[in-house]
């Protein structure tokens, strides 16, 4: 029921009609391998009581609509606190928040940065056919621009509805406005679940196979043949912080997610959590080792065909802490590449 670690929160944003709900339904259909709760978040920041929460299908909770003027607590936080403290939603391990069509997903994601939860990616769904026209609208355009700017994983949806030249132009258009996003092209919201959740084991098949064979235990491997995505994982000893940051910066464009529980030379007492979604990455303090031998585990997930296992092996090998201390010493724990 209750989980020891923080609950992951994935935010799914995008304008009305872009395909957010289709994508979330796809995610639920495919399965995430974890107990998953979907919150359908209409905008707002007003008190919610039990009467305002409509529970549907056991897994989808709707946040009641509200007002922005009165500065009360936000319904999303109210609900997250209830999930954390009062067992609402039955103890999920993953919460997916589907925002309203005009919400700034960055703002929504910040609401998930409260104790007990871990922000685990901002997915923004874009309608390849209409995004440029909408972005040019003097009023709606600013909502679109903010959504693009917030994207860590940008899902360019409905690509089957545009020709190749248009697609190329749209790709350039969104890439220029979504500087920290990894971009995935798709139709009908059918994005590999691993890219959305950062778990290569996602999907019902993986879940059925065994929980024990999580990819982090697989040792250095190449990609998963026949899968809808690439995954690379690595297990080893103590790493060097600057080396890890170099490794992250050198990840290929198609590598949209990486997660790690790392032993860093400059933080010997406790694990360091690495989280990469799109171009945004952070290093956070994790649990103390308390007698366990420090060790590092790292997973990279990317678009199919995007990961070169040998190059990644070589990259991480040069991050292994050695007697030669590295020249650069970076203290920052959270940065976004421009």
């Amino acid at each position: 029921m209750s989980v020891s670690g923080p609950i992951d929160v994935v935010v799914v944003g995008g304008y009305l009609g872009a395909g957010k709900t289709t994508l979330v339904n796809h995610l639920l259909r495919e399965g995430t391998g974890r107990r998953t709760l979907v919150l359908v978040n209409d905008f707002g920041s007003v008190a919610v009581d039990d009467a305002l929460v409509d529970s549907r299908d056991g897994d989808v909770l709707t946040l009641a609509n509200g007002c922005v003027c009165c500065g009360m607590s936000s319904p999303l936080v109210e609900m997250l606190v209830q999930i954390r403290d009062e067992g609402l939603g039955g103890g999920p391990e993953l919460v997916v928040v589907e925002t309203s069509g005009v919400a700034d997903p960055e703002t929504v994601a910040r609401h998930a940065m409260i104790p007990g939860f871990r922000r685990d990616g901002v997915v923004v769904v874009v309608d390849a056919e209409t995004v440029r026209r909408r972005a040019a609208d003097p009023i709606v355009g600013r909502s679109i621009e903010r959504q693009l700017r917030a994207a860590e994983l940008l899902v360019l949806n409905k690509v089957d509805l545009v020709d190749r030249a248009t697609l190329a132009a749209v790709r350039d258009f969104v890439a220029g406005r979504a500087p920290r996003a990894g971009i995935v092209e798709t139709s009908r919201g059918e994005v590999p679940v691993a890219l959305l959740t950062g778990r290569s084991s996602a999907g019902k098949k993986a879940e059925r196979a065994s929980h024990a064979s999580a990819p982090v235990d697989a040792g250095p491997t190449g990609r998963h043949d026949g899968s809808d995505h690439d995954a690379w994982s690595w297990r080893g000893g103590v790493l060097d912080r600057a080396g890890v940051l170099d490794f992250v910066e050198a990840l290929p464009e198609g590598a949209v997610r990486a997660k790690g529980v790392l032993a860093l030379a400059d933080a010997p007492d406790r694990a360091t959590i690495l989280q990469v979604v799109g171009r945004r990455h952070e290093l956070l303090a994790g649990r103390a080792w308390e007698g366990d031998p420090p060790s590092s585990r790292l997973v990279v997930i990317g678009l199919r065909g995007s990961l070169d296992g040998d190059a990644l092996d070589a990259g991480i090998a040069s991050s292994v802490a050695g007697p030669r201390s590295r020249e650069r010493d970076r203290e920052d724990t959270t940065r976004s590449r421009p």
Partner: peptide, 17 residues
């Protein structure tokens, strides 16, 4: 500051609600 942080004052928000 702002909604996420203001929401941390859980008891106060409950009283206001």
């Amino acid at each position: 500051q702002e909604g996420p942080a203001m929401s941390l004052a859980v008891r106060a928000q409950k009283k206001l609600m």
